[in-house]
Design a protein around this nucleic acid. Sequence first.
DNA 1: CAAACGAAGCAAACCGATTTGCCCCCACGG
DNA 2: CCGTGGGGGCAAATCGGTTTGCTTCGTTTG
Lengths: 336, 336
Amino acid sequence: MNRFAPHLRITIADVARHAGVSKTTVSHVLSRKRPVSTVTRARVEEAIRELGYRPDGVARSLRTRTTHTVALIIPDITNPYYPAVARGLEDGLGGSTYRSLICNTDRHPEREVEFLEDVCDRGVDGIVLDSFTLSGERLAELVPPGVPLVRIGATVIDDPWFDTVHADDEQGAFDATLHLLRRPGRRVAMIQGPPGAGGRRNEGYLRALRTVGAPDPELVLSGEWTRPGGAAAMRRLLALPDPPQAVFCANDLMAFGALDAAREARLDVPGDLAVAGFDDIEAAAMTHPPLTTVSNPAYETGLLAGTLLKERLLGVYADAPRTVTLPCRLIRRATA
Amino acid sequence: MNRFAPHLRITIADVARHAGVSKTTVSHVLSRKRPVSTVTRARVEEAIRELGYRPDGVARSLRTRTTHTVALIIPDITNPYYPAVARGLEDGLGGSTYRSLICNTDRHPEREVEFLEDVCDRGVDGIVLDSFTLSGERLAELVPPGVPLVRIGATVIDDPWFDTVHADDEQGAFDATLHLLRRPGRRVAMIQGPPGAGGRRNEGYLRALRTVGAPDPELVLSGEWTRPGGAAAMRRLLALPDPPQAVFCANDLMAFGALDAAREARLDVPGDLAVAGFDDIEAAAMTHPPLTTVSNPAYETGLLAGTLLKERLLGVYADAPRTVTLPCRLIRRATA
DNA sequence: CAAACGAAGCAAACCGATTTGCCCCCACGG
DNA sequence: CCGTGGGGGCAAATCGGTTTGCTTCGTTTG
């Protein structure tokens, strides 16, 4: 087929010629936007098959001003949280009608802006963004009106400009702490991240403690978000004159560190020390003993973001921005 | 700016009019394909800034027949192997000039075909594919000539049609087994995946065993790729009249299962039983004791795929397809 | 001094679809 | 018998860029 033409691409014009009709008619056969007689339709479909014609997406996008593409702009796809978001987004958008463009910003503010502009220039139909630095105002001037954008991630509190989906870290921390507190008389410490970060988790811890009395500032330490960071903090807690019987860690890595320190001190977990983490990373279920932790609804976040986006894309919803807060689930395993 | 026009989009024609030059000149200012006098260039740039003009990527793609987009077609981005590939690909392509479209096939043959056709219709510049079912011949008729495709993944042995990047599972398994064999007199078993799968790893194990004598078929069991699967197989090995002192597992999950079984039997690891896995999943470093295993060069696979693709895209290389085999690295931790 | 050449710019064609406006024909209702 | 309406089809405009060919002008070269 078409063995002699110098350029190999088969266009709608070739099909039209081959079927003896106009380009318009071929287009209508494909799009069903206007009626075409059955006999003509058959001739066109035959021609399409014979020539192996496939419509050019780029040309179509130029005319229709839609690309059936969404951008997912995130810090790092290598962080296991985001692949789950990506799958959720796919499903939320409704299967295979949309394709997603993935951009890793590594939290560089310039790259966030660069990617945002790039995908807008490419004419994506919608954007899902996890940004740490961009305010709603700034975003509003960066993305053209008419391109819906959904914000996800912990750092967005209340953006009046865009739809938002985020997890209820505060409630998750509250639940975990309450779970640690369920045994009467237990004193529950917290190992936080570096000062200023992850504030919602800290607040949940404090709110839970206040339900049973006044929090003890001595029992709140902060450290790096890493395993050694958690271990160091735990050692300091254990060196206290009156060490706690339970500890809530702001993430799972630190919780593993805390478990390391407990093992060093030959403590029984959870008998002598109960430990809970946050995030439910893959390893949490694999360790010995498996870690009690709080799971981040990554897939659901993507799913909801996809749903909100789709409603905007379809024009089903065109009102004021909405905020969806998803619950975090306490995963009770063996350490608490 | 442009407050009265009904459609908000600013085109190159607007810029041209505003600067008092032709569209051609504006285009040349942007592309530098032909010289433009400094004074004219300044006027055009001024107009661009004033109007806030941004070139439309879709229109540009239609004319230039390039989209600066590559497709990454994989089973599941949720499998931690693939995000690393994605980052490698990004870097291999050279930073931010290309964007990637990610397609999850879930190993459905129809979806592999569907995605492949879809991204070709969208005019991607290149494709990286991890397929389990598509042969080179089939691929060659699916993707138009001129669209470079790089295959990745374990199942591709030698595809004479396309560039290929894969890990040397056989050598990794060989190294791991040899490491287990280093203590004289140790009998080393293997827990394989379901029959017919992961053949290269099995071969590596056998080759290593043959360096010290004849493999014992009794010590080769197969099970599901899961933790319970590994535990079940390990229990059967331990029930043998003369149980092995070491076991090589075809993946990390099964290795964790083997460790579970060892713990049940109150065996000391690695004293009574040495264990090695394969894949180096995140949890492998987190468990207690941390797992000795073989790491899959995920990032490097993506990096090389990106490099090969880029060389095709740039036309630097246009010869026969190449195959790159990447070494797997033995990660010595505490279980062996 | 003529030929040659490069810089600078413009008009028009082009990429490959979709969409608009219009025409023709036939059936139907008044 | 005329007006209306819808089915079916076509030509041309459109989307927003890039690229080609051509012209003009000034400078260099033989």
